[in-house]
């Protein structure tokens, strides 16, 4: 299976009055064509920044791409000019954002917002675009698409708006869909519907999906691969099965213990991860999870662990994987 996008050692910083925030510090992962890859991590760990960087959506300044490459169909996105990016955005890559309440322009009809991209990338005239948009609305499960076409975002519920967002992002049938927490702002019942919709559309269109979430429950149902991020770095990655059955990194284990499970004893309480993520303004040279890790060792404080191979496609970045760790303990 070929990869559609490969992120190698991506580093992004923000220049703020307080200093340089190193939001992403060397992230690598790839999305195999036709698959769904999840990026998981608590909020503030750099997921959205990574996603926006993949479409060069960050405004520089304050952002700065400090290094790495993003190979999309073999070509580095970060080397592209704004002109070239305009042709890729929306056309070859689509993006869905977290909050459907604020991600649609309140003063334009949703029909207009869906057809805009088509008219630009696919050279449709107004009539063709409208027909296509109505079909899309139908496809994403919006009833009475003809009437809905001329309505404004405030006339839609949150779930319906997210469906509109999906229609917008799929308007030009992109090869890759980046969904940045598409269900976080929605009710639980609606969440499941939206995920099902994405899954269905993926099967119909063969789109590859990068699904960003902080909810491991979402991951289990929908994803083939999982990338666990913490404080701007990848701490563990592998197939979804491996990550759920055989998590290696203490942070991943912590995440898994903090979600409710059906096979859980009733008396057993959920275990949150104590503490909060480190300051990205001045990150320590050691493992970013050191301060919160129950199994921290002396080496973790000042030396960053390397990404160790676990098995198959499973990698974990933790000193516990080191052969010497067993001896030390």
């Amino acid at each position: 299976m070929s990869t559609i996008i490969e992120v190698k050692n991506l580093a992004v910083s923000f220049h703020t009055y307080g200093g340089e925030v190193q939001a992403v510090r060397g992230v690598s992962f790839s999305v195999p064509r036709g698959s769904t890859v999840a990026i998981v991590g608590e909020s503030g760990c750099g997921k959205s920044v990574t996603a926006k960087a993949m479409m060069q959506l960050l405004s520089c300044p304050p952002a700065e791409y400090k290094g790495g490459e993003i190979l999309f169909n073999g070509e580095d996105i970060l080397q592209k000019t704004e002109r070239q990016m305009e042709r890729i955005r929306g056309n070859e890559m689509g993006m869905i954002f977290q909050d459907p309440m604020t991600s649609l322009n309140p003063t334009l009809t949703i029909g207009r917002q869906i057809t805009e991209g088509m008219m630009k990338h696919r050279a449709f005239n107004g009539k063709e675009a409208k027909e296509e948009a109505i079909q899309l609305l139908h496809l994403v499960g919006i009833p009475q698409p003809e009437q809905r076409f001329d309505q404004y975002p405030h006339e839609f519920s949150g779930g319906m708006r997210q469906r509109v967002m999906i229609a917008i992002s799929l308007a030009c049938q992109p090869e890759l869909l980046i969904a940045d927490e598409p269900t976080t702002a929605l009710d639980v019942t609606i969440q499941a519907q939206i995920l099902q919709l994405l899954k269905k559309l993926q099967e119909e269109m063969g789109t590859s999906i990068l699904l960003i979430t902080h909810d491991l429950g979402v991951v289990a149902e929908t994803c083939d691969y999982v990338v666990v991020m913490y404080a701007g770095v990848v701490v563990e990655s592998g197939t979804a099965e491996e990550i759920f059955a055989n998590a290696q990194h203490p942070y991943t284990k912590g995440l898994l213990q903090s979600i409710p499970r059906l096979d859980q004893q009733r008396a057993q309480a959920l275990r949150p991860i104590i503490g909060s993520p480190p300051d990205l303004m001045d990150p320590s040279p050691g493992c970013p999870f050191y301060a919160r890790c129950e199994q921290a060792m002396r080496i973790c404080k000042n030396h960053h662990p390397t990404l160790e191979h676990v098995n198959g496609e499973h990698y974990s970045s933790c000193w516990l994987r080191h052969p010497m760790a067993q001896v030390v303990r």
Partner: peptide
């Protein structure tokens, strides 16, 4: 947020500014 949506559609900068 909707400025990101507009940009992510591939609209050019002046379209984003003028229309959105």
């Amino acid at each position: 947020d909707y400025m990101y949506t507009a940009k992510a559609k591939g609209l050019s900068r002046h379209m984003v500014i003028l229309q959105h």
